[in-house]
Each structure stands twice: as C-alpha cells, then as structure tokens.
Design a protein around this nucleic acid. Structure first.
Lengths: 192, 192
DNA sequence: ATCCGCATGTAACCCGTTACATGATTCT
DNA sequence: AGAATCATGTAACGGGTTACATGCGGAT
C-alpha cells in the first residue's frame, strides 16, 4: 500500500486515498467534515476515514498545491477546500490512467471509484474506452484462471472450490462491464 | 487494518497476516523462506509478503508462544517453525470464528482463506455451518443493497451502475456459497 | 452561563514497504 | 576459492488507527 522511499523533495504520486479526496473536492468543494459525512452516507458505509487520516491527507494535498482553502467565505473554524488548476489536472490524469491488465482484478474497487467520478468529466467515448479496457483485462484474467483451474491437480477440494469463487466473481464483473458498455452505448439520452 | 492501542502487556488478537502464517505453519511446519515460496507459488501471485513483514511477524508469533523453532533438527541458519499447543488452539479458534454478518462482504477474502484452511481440520458439519452462515450474511447484504438500489434516486447514472456491480458480485458469491454447500453435502466420498 | 454538537488537529502506536546488510550452503 | 543462492534480519519511512485535546458556535 505505501509506495516506499522517494525522500528528499515533495513526493509526487498520491495515495489512493488522496486521489479520492481530491476527486471528491473536484466534484464539490468541501471541508474535512463534509468529506467525512459524505463517506458516512455512502451506500453501505464502506470505509469511514478517521480524523487522523483525513486531516493530514488534506494538508498534504494543500502542501502540494492541489487544493486550497477558500479564503474569503466565513469562519476560520472551517476550512473549505477547492481544487487548484494543478489539482484538477492531477484528478483528470488520474481518471484517464489506463487500466493495468495485470492488477485490474485487485484494483477493481479503485476502478469502480474512478468510473463513478468519470461521469460528467470525461466524454462518453472515453468512458466507453475505459470500460472496454477494463473488460479486456478481466477477460484475460478469467481466461488465465480457467486455464489454471483445469490444469491444476490439487489433492484437496477446498483450494479448487475457492478458485472457483474467484472465477465466478470475476466473471460477474466481466459481464457487468459488458452490460454497462451496452447500456451506455445505447442511451443517447434518458427520458425524464 | 491495525487494531490500535492495546499497550502494556503482550497484545493478543493477531493480525490477519499473522493468522494466515499461523495457519500455514499448522498445515506444515515451515521456515520463513518456505512460507515466502508458498505465497509465491500460490494461484496467481496475490500478495507477496516482504521480508520486513514476514520475519517480524514470525517473531511475534514466537514471542506469544504460538509457534516455536524446531530445536534439534539441523543448521542454525534456518528456523523451521512448528505450532505449539496454544498455537493450534488459536488457529482452531480462528477457523471457528463466526461470520460477522455486518462485515462479511468486506471480509470475503478472509473467509475464503479460512474455508481453504478448514479442510481436514474441521468436520464437514462445521464447514457446512460456516458456509451456511456466510451465505446467510451475503443474502442479507444483497437484499439490503437491492432495497437501497430501488429506493435510491440519484441524479447521475454511474453511481447506480457501480452499485449494480456490487450487487452482481455479491450475488455471484452467494450463488457460489449455495452451490458449494450443495456440492459438499452431496459428496460422501469422491471416486479415485 | 452552560452544554452539546461541529470541526480540526495531534500523539502514541502498529505494521507494511523498500532497500540494504549479512551469514551460511552449495555448486563448479 | 569464488559465485550464486538460500535465509534471516534491520533501518528509514509512510501512513492509517485509536484516543484524546481543543476551540468555536448555537441552543436553553
């Protein structure tokens, strides 16, 4: 999870958490508390960042010049952050990052997060290309796992069954990607 | 992931990683290097623990009296660990830990790991009960998510689509659990 | 005036990562 | 003997967790 020693000057390469915070701030300027509540109210409370993670991360983003506290506004007991130009650029670049086929299964949650944040930011063509490359990566993974599964010759049953679970789950992801491509391709506009 | 301040005396409550190491050692006594290779050769190299994680973790297990280096044996440049009685008991307790419905989706990988390690250690009845409770937890989660999904009224499309992915994936897990229950119930013995 | 919720922040701790260091074995 | 591999270990660093500290604001 950490990405190790870079030392010396300001570390580029944001953490996943930082990227997500930046994305949320790009969507709507927010204070730390706002972000906290947004995480809390998210469909099923997956991951509730602690204060000790949240505020330092915001400061790091600020120090790297990716976000800035809104100046005028009001009380000084509430720092509402908004993205800088550099911040928006970094966020955009993150959204556009290609899907690495090798790590796609492990990064699935991350890619889903990116998918959500892409809406209204990237073009439909870009979104479709993203989904296409995600589907391709999953297809390769599923194919490899299938090959491995039939070749495998375990003495025990549970390992093979567990492998089967991975296969099922990634096949479901793959089908979702295909279906979503179809859905987004079809809809030119939704009725009210 | 960490479980925070316990301070003072020997911290009980092993980390997931420690539990897995303990499980591997219970299955077959191993040195750190052995374990490393076992991780490496695992179906798809998911997670390759670093030396800096592995050896300290083994020492912690040793200090808590859960494993011990085989004494007689041979060279002192290769510590082969075997479980102590306390270690076996802790491993057993871990395998028998009930599936917490609230966290089951997030702990799915963990539960799969436990499922693999259960073979030949727990009775078939216990394994089936485990799978049953896992299936129940997933069913609840899926039902909740379905309810949430139809109730939800987002202005945007992507969040709903992403939610749909979660639904698909967990439905696949649920089906796997049901199917696996059936498979293990049916087989009294496999033909050669 | 006080009490409670908003809001930000900090200290101690834990553990994993990278990268490096260092013995022992084995092969040639 | 020297090289490659086996095998264990350590230091610096990053960042998340819990738990606590602290100020401001509005309600009673």
């Amino acid at each position: 999870m950490g990405q190790g020693k870079v030392s010396g000057m300001a570390r580029q390469q944001l953490t996943v958490f930082e990227h997500i915070l930046l994305g949320l701030i790009c969507a709507t300027p927010s204070s730390g508390y706002d972000l906290k509540r947004r995480f809390a109210s998210t469909p099923i409370g997956v991951y509730q960042p602690s204060s000790g993670a949240l505020y330092p991360a915001l400061r790091r983003l600020e120090q790297q010049g990716l976000v800035q506290a809104q100046p005028g506004q009001s009380a000084r007991q509430r720092r509402v952050y908004e993205p800088t130009e550099a911040g928006r650029a970094a966020h955009l670049a993150w959204l556009r990052m290609p899907v690495a086929a090798a790590t796609a299964p492990g990064d699935l949650g991350l890619h889903l997060m990116r998918f959500v944040m892409m809406e209204h930011v990237l073009s439909r063509a870009e979104v479709l290309a993203f989904l296409r490359s995600l589907a391709d990566a999953l297809a390769v993974f599923v194919a490899d796992l299938e090959k491995y599964t039939i070749a495998a010759d375990f003495p025990d049953r549970h390992p093979l069954l567990a492998l089967g679970h991975g296969l099922d789950v990634h096949r479901a992801s793959l089908r979702w990607a295909e279906r979503t491509i179809a859905a987004l391709s079809a809809a030119d506009d939704a009725p009210a």
